[in-house]
């Protein structure tokens, strides 16, 4: 990682959006789907369906497939309906966005927050604290977290709120990579005169962290956060895909995609809409994150 660039984060974001068409498109995608997640209730009220009500009248009674072409897409059901249950697919996808964003963003907050605190402590305090943290990060990176999460999803009782479990577990396993980068940044920042001056003037480590280090960490932290959201959203979807994530009937793109496997040859629309939504969000965050990294880290050459 390079040394921090002398450029404010808002200015970098503005210049990225002005110059980089891909990053702009990614941002628009993320914002649109974010708004959809926030206003999920309003949108489904306009369409007139909720994601939970079964409706056999929307199905072909002989096959259990949606009545009508391409999964039953119509003015009544914008994205068609789910096979076998007749639940409205638009409502499921829209509320699924809420699940994805909630878990993805909060888990990122947990992992980045932990990573920044722990990484800064390791870099600034040094000594045995640094050794313990660096070593634990190594152990964590060697932990088979996906297998562990799958197994955990199986043994944790159903009464425990699933969204909370996923946020905590996904967030907790994400700290080591952030901590490593933050530690490296802090090691260079520590030698700069303004940090030394603060220390000489008697500032406590916490004060130094808040007023001297943190403002200089926003850039890399923002890039890391943006690039780690799609991974977290993907992880939630993957766990739900495997049946150990969000429990039914809470809508989740991953679970819909998993259910669509059995119907893929006769009702591809069932796969299309949740799949497209998941792809769009992941792509949007990646495009934005790549653009930010290019702007904030002059050494990186992802697209130029």
């Amino acid at each position: 990682m390079s040394t921090p660039v002398a450029r404010s984060v808002p200015a970098a974001i503005r210049s990225v959006l002005a110059r980089d068409r891909w990053a702009l498109a990614g941002t628009v995608t993320v914002v649109v789907i974010g708004l959809v997640a926030i206003f999920a209730n309003v949108l489904t009220a306009i369409e007139g369906h909720d994601p939970y009500t079964y409706d056999a009248t929307a199905l072909d009674p002989n096959t259990g497939l949606p009545a009508g072409s391409f999964g039953g897409v119509s003015a009544e059901h914008w994205f068609g309906v789910e096979p076998l249950t007749g639940r409205d697919l638009f409502a499921i996808v829209v509320h699924g966005a809420r699940t994805s964003f909630l878990i993805g963003l909060l888990a990122t907050l947990v992992s980045i927050g932990l990573g920044v605190l722990v990484g800064a402590a390791a870099g600034y305090l040094g000594g045995w604290i640094d050794r313990v943290i660096t070593w634990s990060a190594d152990v964590f990176l060697g932990f088979p977290y996906l297998v562990f999460m799958i197994a955990l999803g199986a043994v944790v009782p159903a009464e425990f709120p699933r969204a909370l479990l996923l946020i905590v577990v996904i967030g907790f396993f994400g700290w080591p990579s952030t901590a490593r980068i933050v530690r490296a940044q802090v090691l260079t920042l520590k030698e700069r005169n303004f940090v030394k001056a603060a220390r000489v003037l008697g500032a406590s480590p916490w004060q130094v962290f808040r007023t001297e280090l943190l403002p200089n960490l926003w850039g890399p932290v923002l890039v890391m956060a943006t690039l780690s959201v799609p991974g977290k959203i993907g992880l939630e979807a993957a766990l739900s895909f495997l049946g150990v994530g969000v429990l039914p009937p809470t809508p989740s793109w991953g679970r819909s995609i998993s259910a669509a496997i059995d119907w893929v040859s006769v009702d591809p629309a069932y796969l299309f809409f949740p799949g497209l939504a998941l792809f769009a969000v992941t792509w949007g965050f990646n495009a934005l994150g790549d653009g930010l990294r290019d702007a904030l880290d002059p050494r990186s050459v992802t697209r130029r």
């Binding site: 998993s258 669509a260 893929v264 796969l271 799949g275 992941t282 990646n286």
Partner: peptide
């Protein structure tokens, strides 16, 4: 590569099967 990075393996797999 942007598509490959952003599309989950299972989605690509299902499309391939389809």
């Amino acid at each position: 590569s942007v598509i490959g990075v952003s599309a989950p393996v299972y989605l690509v797999g299902l499309l391939g099967i389809l």
